[in-house]
């Protein structure tokens, strides 16, 4: 059974149609990449899953349950962690408080989860008393991912984790995404950086003007002429 199923989603912002008949499936344990140009609807797709945007038509099924009418604070309780575009860490909370915010809906002792995040991102442990706003871009991205992991998600939504980061930092982030998957968390990844995303992902979807125009195994997309032309900066030969 698929963990996440988007069925025929239409999303509108006023008169603007952001998504049209988008259907996406994510199986348990997969990394699925969502690719496309700016404004193609990638972020809107993630926002619809986590309840920040409401579909006009269609449905979102998570572990078989309809979740598209739930408010965001309930969706996260079901096991959907969302690392939003631009990281959006709380700038005036310490690193530790940011991580605690990630576990806002959970009760009981969180020190083990906290240690797990610190093990993935040792630099966060060094900076745990520092305000989130004082971290570098890469550290903020790590914090945003760590914060989402603190909700103990079954599905992690990552919106452009490589945005604005140096290549070396991007490598680190991507290798940690792989580690997170191998520890059992399913990942839906939105990326502009199509090559790296497809090298990491099992499958991919390509969005254009709010529609899914291609869906295939990552390896197939990586070698597809049209994908290479449109997203990998190669002229259509």
């Amino acid at each position: 059974m698929s963990l996440l199923q988007l069925v025929d989603l239409d999303v509108r912002y006023g008169a603007i149609q952001a998504l049209s008949a988008v259907s996406v499936e994510v199986q348990q344990g997969e990394i699925v990449a969502l690719l496309g140009a700016n404004g193609a609807g990638k972020t809107t797709t993630l926002r619809t899953i986590s309840g920040l945007a409401r579909p006009w038509k269609g449905s979102v099924l998570f572990a078989g349950q309809e979740i598209h009418r739930l408010p965001p604070h309930e969706v996260v309780g079901l096991g959907v962690g969302h690392v939003p575009e631009g990281r959006r860490i709380f700038p005036q909370m310490s690193v530790q408080e940011n991580l605690e915010m990630g576990a806002y809906r959970r009760r009981g002792n969180l020190s083990q989860d906290m240690e797990r995040v610190y093990a993935l991102f040792p630099v966060l442990k060094q900076r745990r008393r520092q305000d989130g706003g004082t971290l570098s871009g890469g550290e903020q991205q790590m914090l945003a991912i760590g914060r989402a992991l603190m909700s103990d998600p079954r599905l992690l939504l990552l919106d452009e984790p490589s945005m604005g980061l140096a290549p070396l930092v991007v490598e680190t982030i991507f290798s940690i995404i792989e580690q997170i998957r191998s520890s059992g968390t399913t990942i839906l990844l939105v990326e502009q950086n199509a090559v790296q995303a497809l090298q990491l992902a099992d499958r991919g979807y390509v969005l254009e003007n709010g529609r899914v125009v291609m869906a295939d195994q990552a390896g197939v997309l990586l070698n597809d002429q049209r994908v290479r032309a449109a997203y990998l900066g190669e002229g259509a030969a």
């Binding site: 920040l52 604070h73 408080e97 914060r147």
Partner: peptide, 24 residues
């Protein structure tokens, strides 16, 4: 407190607070 943390999170970034599970 938990209330205080939720309050500060909403003050800093309400939308992200809701993604963390805060009922705004």
């Amino acid at each position: 407190t938990r209330l205080g943390k939720g309050l500060r999170a909403v003050a800093q970034d309400a939308e992200t607070a809701s993604l963390m599970g805060v009922n705004i």
